[in-house]
Design a binder for these strands. Structure first.
Length: 267
DNA sequence: ATGGTCGTTGGACGA
């Protein structure tokens, strides 16, 4: 099972990139964030023509999430209990994943939680407090969900760089939004719940980032942060065989400011 | 050089 997270920063603009990338990479599941469109405008036909089922939770102008999959999604949840939020940032679904060629009759129920965690703007701002409160509610929800779903994946744009090695200039970013101690503590809470950062299960080259600001020629200078993640429950981590960031689409013409992050599981 | 870049929108705002 190949699963991917990609903040596309407007699916309307990025649809050609998504379709091109799907064609070559052929993931089983693709979680999108910042689709920035209402449900009525979602390009269902283009996605289905590419061979994928799709569910989405959109809104006008901002936010919006979607899950593309080879199989049909069940038990779809777009609102976290206890988090009264009109911003469309969450989409959870259960997928039936075939468990390898050796036993084609075997299937695994994988719970996918696609999140677009708030950016937080700046430490101390109203949006920062909204981010931390949002994260607290997500942790509470995960506490119960992990008991229900042994095969659980939490992925998306976390807007958190977990460690210094996830930042091009750790001193410059130290204490700032995306890197502040309270945000990183919330990331650790996910880890404490048994969810592991699949990217760090493997030896990685230094300076692996998933987001580069459009300004200051940040991509050309590789001034990035790793803020998009795929976290997995212990049963899934044991089956994880690789994880990588695909920088290639970030170099395409008119790109998203984020790159796709990929994890592969041998179920 | 007191900006710088996108996307959505039709002037700012969010990232």
């Amino acid at each position: 099972m190949k699963i991917v997270t990609w903040n596309v920063n407007s699916l309307r603009v990025r649809l050609p990139h998504v379709l091109d990338w799907l064609k070559t990479e052929q993931p089983d599941i693709l979680a999108l964030q910042e689709i920035k469109m209402e449900d009525k405008d979602f390009p269902v036909e283009d996605i289905e023509a590419a061979g994928y089922s799709v569910i989405y939770s959109g809104q006008k102008t901002y936010n919006g999430v979607a899950i593309l999959s080879r199989g049909v999604c069940g038990d779809v949840i777009a609102d976290i209990p206890g988090l009264d939020d009109h911003q469309r940032r969450v989409l959870c679904a259960t997928l039936d994943v075939a468990s390898g060629a050796a036993s084609p009759a075997m299937h695994t129920q994988v719970r996918v939680m696609n999140v677009y965690i708030p950016n937080g703007e700046a430490v101390g701002s109203d949006k920062y407090r909204y981010k931390l409160d949002w994260l607290e509610k997500l942790v509470i929800y995960l506490e119960e969900q992990r008991a229900i779903y042994p095969y659980l994946i939490l992925l998306g744009d976390f807007n958190i760089a977990p460690e210094a090695c996830d930042v091009h200039d750790p001193m410059l970013w130290d204490g700032r939004v995306l890197c502040s101690a309270p945000e990183r503590k919330m990331f650790e809470r996910f880890v404490d719940l048994g969810l592991c950062d699949t990217f760090r299960l493997f030896e990685q080259a230094p300076n692996q980032f998933s987001w580069w600001d459009y300004r200051m020629a940040a991509f050309r200078r590789d001034l990035g942060l790793r803020i998009d993640h795929i976290l997995a429950s212990p049963a899934l981590c044991a089956a994880c065989v690789s994880s990588r960031i695909d920088k290639i689409p970030r170099a395409w013409e008119r790109p998203s400011d984020h790159a796709p992050v990929v994890a592969v599981f041998d179920l």
